[in-house]
Protein backbone atom coordinates (compact mmCIF):
# COMPACT_ATOMS: atom_id res chain seq x y z
CA UNK A 1 0.00 0.00 0.00
CA UNK A 2 1.08 3.54 -0.69
CA UNK A 3 0.00 6.87 0.71
CA UNK A 4 -1.34 9.84 -1.13
CA UNK A 5 1.60 12.08 -1.89
CA UNK A 6 4.46 9.67 -1.22
CA UNK A 7 5.67 6.19 -1.61
CA UNK A 8 6.94 4.97 1.72
CA UNK A 9 4.86 1.85 1.93
CA UNK A 10 2.42 2.97 4.63
CA UNK A 11 -1.31 3.32 4.30
CA UNK A 12 -3.15 6.52 5.05
CA UNK A 13 -5.85 5.13 7.11
CA UNK A 14 -4.03 3.47 9.96
CA UNK A 15 -4.77 6.23 12.50
CA UNK A 16 -7.56 5.56 14.94
CA UNK A 17 -9.19 3.02 12.68
CA UNK A 18 -9.64 -0.65 13.42
CA UNK A 19 -7.32 -3.38 12.24
CA UNK A 20 -7.69 -5.56 9.18
CA UNK A 21 -8.03 -5.08 5.45
CA UNK A 22 -9.75 -2.04 4.02
CA UNK A 23 -12.97 -3.47 2.68
CA UNK A 24 -14.77 -1.64 -0.14
CA UNK A 25 -17.91 -3.73 0.40
CA UNK A 26 -18.21 -2.46 3.98
CA UNK A 27 -18.01 1.12 2.70
CA UNK A 28 -20.68 0.63 0.05
CA UNK A 29 -22.78 -1.35 2.53
CA UNK A 30 -22.79 1.63 4.87
CA UNK A 31 -23.89 3.89 2.00
CA UNK A 32 -26.82 1.51 1.46
CA UNK A 33 -27.86 1.92 5.11
CA UNK A 34 -28.44 5.61 4.36
CA UNK A 35 -30.91 4.91 1.54
CA UNK A 36 -34.29 6.62 1.72
CA UNK A 37 -32.95 9.16 4.17
CA UNK A 38 -32.02 12.80 4.50
CA UNK A 39 -28.48 13.96 5.32
CA UNK A 40 -28.51 17.46 6.77
CA UNK A 41 -25.78 20.12 6.75
CA UNK A 42 -25.15 21.45 10.26
CA UNK A 43 -22.65 23.95 11.65
CA UNK A 44 -23.20 23.56 15.42
CA UNK A 45 -23.99 20.87 17.98
CA UNK A 46 -27.38 22.50 18.52
CA UNK A 47 -28.21 22.26 14.82
CA UNK A 48 -27.06 18.63 14.85
CA UNK A 49 -29.49 17.89 17.68
CA UNK A 50 -32.33 19.52 15.72
CA UNK A 51 -31.39 17.46 12.64
CA UNK A 52 -31.35 14.19 14.60
CA UNK A 53 -34.72 14.97 16.21
CA UNK A 54 -36.14 15.78 12.77
CA UNK A 55 -35.24 12.27 11.60
CA UNK A 56 -31.98 12.84 9.69
CA UNK A 57 -30.02 9.65 8.85
CA UNK A 58 -26.74 11.57 9.21
CA UNK A 59 -25.40 15.06 9.68
CA UNK A 60 -22.73 16.82 7.60
CA UNK A 61 -20.48 18.96 9.79
CA UNK A 62 -19.54 22.23 8.13
CA UNK A 63 -17.95 25.53 9.10
CA UNK A 64 -20.52 27.42 6.99
CA UNK A 65 -23.48 26.21 4.94
CA UNK A 66 -23.07 26.62 1.16
CA UNK A 67 -25.40 29.65 0.98
CA UNK A 68 -23.09 31.51 3.39
CA UNK A 69 -19.94 30.36 1.60
CA UNK A 70 -21.44 31.77 -1.57
CA UNK A 71 -22.39 35.06 0.09
CA UNK A 72 -19.30 35.65 2.21
CA UNK A 73 -16.61 34.31 -0.13
CA UNK A 74 -13.10 33.57 1.16
CA UNK A 75 -11.43 30.18 1.27
CA UNK A 76 -13.81 27.42 2.40
CA UNK A 77 -12.01 24.65 4.29
CA UNK A 78 -12.71 21.56 6.37
CA UNK A 79 -14.64 22.41 9.55
CA UNK A 80 -12.60 22.95 12.72
CA UNK A 81 -11.76 19.90 14.79
CA UNK A 82 -13.59 21.30 17.83
CA UNK A 83 -16.72 21.84 15.80
CA UNK A 84 -16.64 18.33 14.38
CA UNK A 85 -15.99 16.70 17.76
CA UNK A 86 -18.76 18.65 19.48
CA UNK A 87 -21.19 17.52 16.77
CA UNK A 88 -20.01 13.89 17.05
CA UNK A 89 -20.47 13.99 20.81
CA UNK A 90 -23.96 15.43 20.54
CA UNK A 91 -25.64 13.00 18.14
CA UNK A 92 -25.76 9.20 17.86
CA UNK A 93 -26.40 9.21 14.10
CA UNK A 94 -23.42 9.13 11.70
CA UNK A 95 -21.38 12.30 11.31
CA UNK A 96 -20.03 13.23 7.89
CA UNK A 97 -17.67 16.10 7.10
CA UNK A 98 -16.29 17.75 3.98
CA UNK A 99 -12.73 18.07 2.76
CA UNK A 100 -11.40 20.15 -0.11
CA UNK A 101 -10.94 18.34 -3.42
CA UNK A 102 -7.51 16.72 -3.42
CA UNK A 103 -6.75 17.59 0.21
CA UNK A 104 -5.77 14.17 1.50
CA UNK A 105 -4.33 15.63 4.70
CA UNK A 106 -7.68 17.11 5.69
CA UNK A 107 -9.09 13.66 4.93
CA UNK A 108 -6.55 12.04 7.25
CA UNK A 109 -7.62 14.39 10.02
CA UNK A 110 -11.24 13.36 9.53
CA UNK A 111 -10.38 9.67 9.44
CA UNK A 112 -8.37 10.03 12.65
CA UNK A 113 -11.42 11.68 14.23
CA UNK A 114 -13.45 8.65 13.09
CA UNK A 115 -15.79 10.76 10.97
CA UNK A 116 -18.19 8.20 9.45
CA UNK A 117 -18.22 9.50 5.84
CA UNK A 118 -15.89 11.99 4.13
CA UNK A 119 -17.30 14.25 1.42
CA UNK A 120 -14.59 15.35 -1.02
CA UNK A 121 -16.62 18.36 -1.97
CA UNK A 122 -16.70 21.06 -4.62
CA UNK A 123 -18.50 23.26 -2.08
CA UNK A 124 -15.12 23.87 -0.44
CA UNK A 125 -12.27 25.62 -2.24
CA UNK A 126 -10.30 22.95 -4.16
CA UNK A 127 -6.81 22.22 -2.87
CA UNK A 128 -5.61 20.50 -6.05
CA UNK A 129 -6.53 21.65 -9.53
CA UNK A 130 -5.74 18.31 -11.17
CA UNK A 131 -6.06 15.40 -8.77
CA UNK A 132 -8.68 14.06 -6.45
CA UNK A 133 -7.77 12.02 -3.34
CA UNK A 134 -6.84 8.34 -3.74
CA UNK A 135 -9.75 7.19 -1.64
CA UNK A 136 -8.85 3.48 -1.77
CA UNK A 137 -6.16 4.16 0.82
CA UNK A 138 -8.62 5.21 3.49
CA UNK A 139 -10.64 3.08 5.85
CA UNK A 140 -13.29 5.81 6.04
CA UNK A 141 -15.72 5.81 3.10
CA UNK A 142 -15.90 8.77 0.72
CA UNK A 143 -18.75 10.43 -1.14
CA UNK A 144 -18.03 12.59 -4.19
CA UNK A 145 -20.12 14.81 -6.43
CA UNK A 146 -20.73 14.10 -10.11
CA UNK A 147 -22.56 15.86 -12.92
CA UNK A 148 -22.53 12.99 -15.39
CA UNK A 149 -21.79 9.28 -15.72
CA UNK A 150 -18.14 9.71 -16.66
CA UNK A 151 -17.41 11.87 -13.64
CA UNK A 152 -19.26 9.41 -11.37
CA UNK A 153 -17.20 6.48 -12.67
CA UNK A 154 -13.93 8.42 -12.35
CA UNK A 155 -14.70 9.07 -8.70
CA UNK A 156 -15.64 5.42 -8.15
CA UNK A 157 -12.37 4.41 -9.81
CA UNK A 158 -10.59 6.55 -7.20
CA UNK A 159 -12.45 4.72 -4.44
CA UNK A 160 -15.65 6.69 -3.77
CA UNK A 161 -18.26 4.43 -2.11
CA UNK A 162 -21.13 6.81 -2.77
CA UNK A 163 -21.92 9.31 -5.50
CA UNK A 164 -24.11 12.38 -5.20
CA UNK A 165 -25.15 14.85 -7.82
CA UNK A 166 -23.40 18.18 -7.56
CA UNK A 167 -26.42 20.30 -8.34
CA UNK A 168 -25.63 23.94 -7.55
CA UNK A 169 -25.13 24.11 -3.81
CA UNK A 170 -26.36 27.04 -1.73
CA UNK A 171 -28.88 28.29 -4.29
CA UNK A 172 -32.09 26.56 -3.18
CA UNK A 173 -32.62 25.95 -6.92
CA UNK A 174 -33.05 22.22 -7.58
CA UNK A 175 -32.74 22.45 -11.36
CA UNK A 176 -29.05 21.50 -11.62
CA UNK A 177 -29.51 18.43 -9.39
CA UNK A 178 -32.37 17.42 -11.69
CA UNK A 179 -30.17 17.97 -14.74
CA UNK A 180 -27.41 15.79 -13.29
CA UNK A 181 -29.76 12.96 -12.27
CA UNK A 182 -31.41 12.94 -15.68
CA UNK A 183 -28.10 13.07 -17.51
CA UNK A 184 -26.63 10.15 -15.55
CA UNK A 185 -29.80 8.15 -16.16
CA UNK A 186 -29.80 8.98 -19.88
CA UNK A 187 -26.12 8.08 -20.26
CA UNK A 188 -26.68 4.74 -18.50
CA UNK A 189 -29.67 4.11 -20.78
CA UNK A 190 -27.61 4.77 -23.90
CA UNK A 191 -24.82 2.54 -22.61
CA UNK A 192 -27.16 -0.34 -21.74
CA UNK A 193 -28.74 -0.16 -25.18
CA UNK A 194 -25.38 -0.39 -26.96
CA UNK A 195 -23.96 -3.67 -28.28
CA UNK A 196 -20.93 -4.90 -26.39
CA UNK A 197 -18.44 -3.89 -29.09
CA UNK A 198 -19.40 -0.23 -28.52
CA UNK A 199 -18.64 -0.27 -24.78
CA UNK A 200 -15.02 0.74 -25.29
CA UNK A 201 -16.04 3.75 -27.37
CA UNK A 202 -18.39 4.73 -24.55
CA UNK A 203 -15.54 4.40 -22.06
CA UNK A 204 -13.41 6.66 -24.26
CA UNK A 205 -16.15 9.27 -24.57
CA UNK A 206 -16.97 9.11 -20.84
CA UNK A 207 -13.26 9.26 -19.94
CA UNK A 208 -13.86 6.46 -17.46
CA UNK A 209 -12.15 3.09 -16.88
CA UNK A 210 -13.34 0.34 -19.23
CA UNK A 211 -14.06 -2.22 -16.49
CA UNK A 212 -16.40 0.15 -14.65
CA UNK A 213 -18.16 1.11 -17.88
CA UNK A 214 -18.53 -2.59 -18.73
CA UNK A 215 -19.96 -3.18 -15.25
CA UNK A 216 -22.66 -0.55 -15.82
CA UNK A 217 -23.39 -2.08 -19.24
CA UNK A 218 -23.83 -5.51 -17.61
CA UNK A 219 -25.65 -4.54 -14.41
CA UNK A 220 -27.61 -1.56 -15.69
CA UNK A 221 -26.69 0.52 -12.65
CA UNK A 222 -23.80 2.15 -10.83
CA UNK A 223 -21.78 -0.11 -8.51
CA UNK A 224 -22.44 2.32 -5.61
CA UNK A 225 -25.58 4.25 -4.57
CA UNK A 226 -26.36 7.64 -6.10
CA UNK A 227 -27.85 10.35 -3.89
CA UNK A 228 -29.07 13.84 -4.79
CA UNK A 229 -27.46 17.05 -3.56
CA UNK A 230 -27.26 20.69 -4.48
CA UNK A 231 -30.27 23.00 -4.26
CA UNK A 232 -32.84 20.75 -2.57
CA UNK A 233 -34.90 23.13 -0.40
CA UNK A 234 -38.46 21.81 0.01
CA UNK A 235 -40.29 18.50 0.59
CA UNK A 236 -41.45 18.63 -3.02
CA UNK A 237 -37.83 19.07 -4.19
CA UNK A 238 -36.85 15.98 -2.18
CA UNK A 239 -39.74 13.97 -3.64
CA UNK A 240 -38.77 15.13 -7.14
CA UNK A 241 -35.17 13.95 -6.92
CA UNK A 242 -36.24 10.65 -5.30
CA UNK A 243 -38.69 10.10 -8.15
CA UNK A 244 -35.86 10.68 -10.62
CA UNK A 245 -33.89 7.82 -9.07
CA UNK A 246 -31.91 9.42 -6.27
CA UNK A 247 -31.61 6.94 -3.39
CA UNK A 248 -31.32 9.59 -0.65
CA UNK A 249 -31.12 13.34 -0.33
CA UNK A 250 -28.47 15.70 0.98
CA UNK A 251 -29.98 18.98 2.14
CA UNK A 252 -27.51 21.78 2.69
CA UNK A 253 -28.69 25.31 3.19
CA UNK A 254 -32.33 24.28 2.68
CA UNK A 255 -32.94 23.41 6.32
CA UNK A 256 -31.00 25.84 8.46
CA UNK A 257 -31.65 28.75 6.07
CA UNK A 258 -35.39 28.09 6.24
CA UNK A 259 -37.67 29.99 8.62
CA UNK A 260 -38.22 26.99 10.91
CA UNK A 261 -35.45 24.39 10.56
CA UNK A 262 -37.01 21.78 12.86
CA UNK A 263 -40.27 21.78 10.92
CA UNK A 264 -38.62 21.99 7.50
CA UNK A 265 -36.24 19.16 8.36
CA UNK A 266 -39.03 16.88 9.59
CA UNK A 267 -41.16 17.68 6.56
CA UNK A 268 -38.34 16.84 4.14
CA UNK A 269 -37.70 13.55 5.98
CA UNK A 270 -41.40 12.69 5.70
CA UNK A 271 -41.55 13.52 1.99
CA UNK A 272 -38.38 11.52 1.26
CA UNK A 273 -39.63 8.36 3.00
CA UNK A 274 -42.90 8.27 1.03
CA UNK A 275 -42.08 10.40 -2.02
CA UNK A 276 -44.43 8.58 -4.38
CA UNK A 277 -47.60 9.40 -2.40
CA UNK A 278 -49.15 12.81 -3.20
CA UNK A 279 -51.31 12.77 -0.04
CA UNK A 280 -48.22 12.43 2.16
CA UNK A 281 -46.47 15.13 0.13
CA UNK A 282 -49.36 17.56 0.73
CA UNK A 283 -49.01 16.96 4.48
CA UNK A 284 -45.26 17.51 4.28
CA UNK A 285 -45.68 20.73 2.30
CA UNK A 286 -48.18 22.02 4.88
CA UNK A 287 -45.78 21.19 7.69
CA UNK A 288 -42.83 23.02 6.13
CA UNK A 289 -41.44 26.03 7.93
CA UNK A 290 -41.03 28.55 5.07
CA UNK A 291 -38.42 27.66 2.45
CA UNK A 292 -35.13 29.51 2.04
CA UNK A 293 -35.39 32.39 -0.43
CA UNK A 294 -32.47 31.21 -2.52
CA UNK A 295 -31.34 32.38 -5.94
CA UNK A 296 -32.05 31.02 -9.39
CA UNK A 297 -29.11 29.30 -11.06
CA UNK A 298 -29.30 31.84 -13.91
CA UNK A 299 -28.33 34.54 -11.39
CA UNK A 300 -25.10 32.71 -10.55
CA UNK A 301 -22.28 33.94 -12.79
CA UNK A 302 -20.24 31.11 -14.35
CA UNK A 303 -17.14 31.93 -12.29
CA UNK A 304 -19.22 31.58 -9.08
CA UNK A 305 -20.57 28.14 -9.94
CA UNK A 306 -19.44 25.41 -7.57
CA UNK A 307 -20.38 22.45 -9.77
CA UNK A 308 -17.59 23.11 -12.29
CA UNK A 309 -14.97 22.38 -9.61
CA UNK A 310 -13.54 18.87 -9.92
CA UNK A 311 -13.13 16.98 -13.17
Amino acid sequence: MKTNGNDDGKTNGSGGAGAGEIDFEVKVGFARMLQGGVIMDVTTAEEARIAEDAGAVAVMALERVPADIRKEGGVARMASVDRIVSIQETVSIPTMAKVRIGHFQEAQVLEELKVDFIDESEVLTPADSEHHIDKHLFRAPFVCGARNLGEALRRIAEGAALIRTKGEAGTGDVSEAVRHLRLIRAEMGALKAAPREEVLAHAKRLAAPYDLVLGVWQEGRLPVPNFAAGGVATPADAALVMSLGAESVFVGSGIFKSEDPARTGAAIVKATARYAEPGILVEACRETGGAMKGMAVEQVPPEAQLQTRGW
Binding site: D23, V26, V115, D116, P141
Partner: peptide
Protein backbone atom coordinates in the same frame (compact mmCIF):
# COMPACT_ATOMS: atom_id res chain seq x y z
CA UNK B 1 -22.95 1.17 17.51
CA UNK B 2 -21.29 -1.04 20.09
CA UNK B 3 -18.25 -1.84 17.92
CA UNK B 4 -17.59 1.88 17.33
CA UNK B 5 -17.96 4.12 14.31
CA UNK B 6 -17.87 3.31 10.59
CA UNK B 7 -14.07 2.90 10.49
CA UNK B 8 -14.56 0.00 12.92
CA UNK B 9 -17.01 -1.81 10.60
CA UNK B 10 -15.83 -5.17 9.21
CA UNK B 11 -16.66 -8.36 7.34
Amino acid sequence: NAYGRQVDSFT
